[in-house]
Design a protein around this nucleic acid. Sequence first.
DNA 1: GCTCATGTTCCCCT
DNA 2: CAGGGGAACATGAG
Length: 279
Amino acid sequence: MPELPDVEGFRRYLAHHAEGHRIERVDVPDRMLLRNRSPRALGRAVDGRRFTTPRRHGKWLLAPVGETELLLHFGMTGLLRWAERGQERGRERDRHDRLIFVCEDGELRYNDVRRFGGVWLARDERERLAVTGPLGPDAAAIDREQFERLLAGRRGGIKAALMDQRLIAGIGNLLSDEILWRACIHPSTRVATLNRRRRERLYEALHSAVAESIRYGRVPQGKRWLMRVRDDRQATCPRCGTRLRRGRVAGRTACWCPRCQRLAAHAVPPVSGRRGASG
DNA sequence: GCTCATGTTCCCCT
DNA sequence: CAGGGGAACATGAG
């Protein structure tokens, strides 16, 4: 789940359920996912303090508590769940609940099946940056001129660029495919070969796809979205009905329409449909 | 048993 | 240095 839209959903969820609530204690059944503090140090920092308004940058959820800030990353399978105290439903914890912020009238559970995500603590901006690494501007807040500047001088492929968190924060595999499909640009296209008109079109696609996704709190599966069909066996393009193609681009499984998203022959090295042709 | 998965990071090449 | 490919990380689903 967790790309920018999902994390934005978690941000709203946290704000809705936990903001203003006082943390009594934190249970840490899986120490591995508490990344840069001991459970005791986490307790010293947050016990007795309240969640205030959470922020988000790219795929990071930043939740201030007292003097410090919780930094949450959701990896591939992370999520948040609020369980109201005394309610039958959600009373039992899940085996994948890794960190539980116990409040007076409920608890916020950080759940992550695959354990690629984690929770960090940062006392100040310096410490936060050390954890997140350099991040580009949030994908939801980029304007045209900024987008132009970001792409200028970029040498690699466009899908890799969109997913590069140092360039633009928040776009992952699904969203990048969605944006490129919407802009009718092949994922392997070299950034440098995109003319002004296509960059413009790409910006529009990014902007609209991100804005709409954020409203849903995930990448939507509507009629005009690749998301709806990308996992189907015989997936076809929602726009033209052509059978979609799948292949490895920028290290991920990309999905695109060979008719809508044509690749200029000179623009790119061949894209293999599968992995491991060499040794 | 095998393959694949919405993310990040590290290593090796070009 | 920039960027691409591949593997690794941990776990579950099909």
